[in-house]
């Protein structure tokens, strides 16, 4: 079976900076893969290359074996590759409910109903019901992160690429997001690639991690395996992970 998500020899240069240098990785169907690395390692660049925000200088991305070359961002999203942003990209003046509705309508299956039931379920799941009619810009950082996840899960995708979904939010909301990820992974068999600095969560969620350093893939393996590699330790300025 083809990997759920594959990057093959991706290169991207910004001026003098080689932000992605021959990046190759494959995430299997139903896997939750961690993507770690020091700041500036090229993790977000990789996310942007995979989801069509940037066009790669060379290399290819495949979703379930099909090339995404030449696909616009919205086409990639409609094929079931859903992403989240480190800095949430919600619709600030739209209400929480309207944010969820926007996420639903564009990607809904052809035979879907209006999705209002799904919106209510998502409001319950994210515990954002009391704020359903408040504009998204009134939410706290953690609530925004939750809402962003809720939007991503409105229509189950086949593959999720999450950029720092846990950064800067309180432990209760972190747990809520972890539960949502596990739930979608188990019920729909969705694949995840999660960029995070939160090693405890990565250890909990991800049997395997990929380490990036200076635009390259430095290692694959379990967190404990990669944490012992001299190159990884050096890349984190000598600090052992955690």
């Amino acid at each position: 079976m083809a990997a759920a998500l594959e990057a093959i020899g991706l290169n991207k240069r910004f001026g003098g900076l080689q932000a992605a240098n021959d990046v190759t990785l494959a995430v299997e169907q139903g896997e939750i893969r961690g993507l770690i690395g020091p700041n500036g390692a090229g993790k977000t660049t990789l996310v942007n290359l995979v989801t069509g925000v940037y066009a790669a200088d060379s290399g290819e991305v495949k979703l379930a074996g099909e090339s995404l070359a030449g696909c616009a961002m919205h086409e990639i999203a409609r094929r079931g590759l859903v992403r989240s942003f480190q800095v949430t990209r919600l619709f600030g003046s739209l209400t929480v409910r309207e944010n969820l509705r926007t996420a639903f309508l564009a990607r809904r299956p052809k035979d879907a109903s209006d999705g209002e039931g799904q919106i209510e379920r998502m409001l319950d799941l994210t515990k954002l019901k009391p704020l359903a009619d408040a504009p998204a810009k009134k939410l706290s950082g953690g609530q925004r992160a939750l809402l962003q996840m809720g939007c991503g899960f409105m229509v189950p995708g086949s593959c999720y690429v999450l950029d720092e979904p846990f950064s800067g939010i309180n432990p209760v909301i972190k747990d809520a997001i972890i539960d949502m990820i596990v739930d979608v992974n188990q019920r729909h068999g969705a694949t995840f690639l999660i960029v995070s600095h939160e090693m405890t969560i990565i250890r909990r969620l991800c049997p395997k991690v990929t380490v990036m350093m200076e635009g390259r893939v430095a290692a694959h393996g379990t967190l404990d395996e990669v944490a012992r590699l001299p190159e990884v330790i050096a890349g984190y300025l000598g600090k052992a992970l955690e």
Binding site: M73, H74, F91, T102
Partner: peptide, 8 residues
């Protein structure tokens, strides 16, 4: 960017 991510 948000609408494109939503598939629009």
């Amino acid at each position: 960017v948000g609408v494109q991510t939503a598939g629009i």
